[in-house]
Simulated scan of single mutants.
Amino acid sequence: MDEVLKFLTDNPVFYIATVDGGRPRVRPFGFVMKYEGKLWFCTNNQKNVYKQLRENPYFELCTASPDRKWLRLKGRAVFNSTPQAKAKALEVMPELKAMYSADDPIFEVFYVEEGEATFYSLTGETRTVKL
């Protein structure tokens, strides 16, 4: 998990894909943290991505590094927006405090279950890790 977290933080814009009415939807994300032994992300419950993940919690994300390696992560989003998890997110990325607080009802955090991350390179090497 630490290697996945490092790749995502080293390449801080990653793209999360969800399903909306049977069609793919992709958008950039930039927050990730490790908390309670899990990989966490955040959004707000006014956004379509939240509604899509509530309807179908399976997602994939992808990002690439400048040296032409990339990561694909798939899993199931589990929302657990406790004040403690939100506070940890605000600690990890203080910039979020401009938009949210730990008791903000629209601020949502979720962790990955059934996670599987695959690292790729142009040389054809792949390696998969379970989260």
Rank of each mutant, 00 (worst) to 15 (best):
G30T: 05
F41T: 10
G30F: 00
L53V: 10
K51E: 07
K47N: 11
G30V: 06
N44D: 15
C42P: 02
R68Y: 14
G37W: 02
V49F: 02
N44Q: 13
G30H: 04
T63L: 02
R54S: 11
C62G: 11
K51I: 04
L71Q: 08
K38D: 13
K34M: 10
C62F: 06
K51P: 08
K74M: 13
K47E: 12
D67W: 07
N56R: 10
T43D: 09
E60W: 06
T63C: 01
L73R: 14
K51H: 10
T43E: 02
L53K: 10
C62M: 11
Q52E: 15
E36W: 00
Y50F: 13
L73W: 09
V32P: 01
V32R: 00
F31A: 15
G37E: 03
E36T: 07
Q46C: 05
E60M: 03
L61K: 00
Y50R: 01
D67T: 15
N56P: 04
K51W: 02
T43L: 06
K51G: 08
K69Q: 13
C62Y: 01
Q46W: 09
E36H: 07
R54V: 15
F41D: 05
K51R: 10
M33K: 00
L73F: 12
A77P: 06
A77C: 03
A64M: 13
V32T: 00
L73H: 04
V49T: 10
K74N: 15
N44C: 10
A77V: 01
Y35N: 09
K47Y: 12
Q52T: 03
Q46S: 14
N44F: 01
R76F: 03
L71K: 01
K38S: 06
E55H: 05
G75H: 07
R68G: 08
W70E: 01
F41P: 06
L53G: 11
F59H: 05
P66C: 12
Y58R: 15
L61W: 07
Y35E: 08
G37Q: 06
K74D: 14
L39Y: 05
T43K: 03
Q52L: 08
L71M: 06
R54W: 01
Q46I: 12
K34Q: 13
Y58M: 11
E60R: 05
K69A: 13
T43H: 00
D67F: 06
F41V: 02
C62S: 14
K47V: 00
E36L: 02
V32H: 03
N44H: 13
E60V: 13
T63D: 00
F59E: 03
V32E: 00
C42T: 03
K47H: 05
L61R: 12
L71E: 07
R76T: 11
T63Y: 04
C42G: 00
R54D: 09
V32F: 01
Q46E: 15
N48I: 12
A64R: 13
G37D: 04
Q52V: 02
K74T: 15
C62K: 04
R54E: 11
P57R: 10
G37R: 12
C62H: 11
K38Y: 04
Y50L: 09
K34I: 09
N56F: 04
G30Y: 07
L39K: 01
M33H: 01
S65N: 04
F41I: 04
Y58H: 15
L73Y: 14
R72I: 09
L53P: 05
E55Q: 14
W70H: 03
K51T: 02
E60F: 08
E55I: 03
K34L: 14
A77F: 01
E55V: 06
L73A: 08
W40K: 06
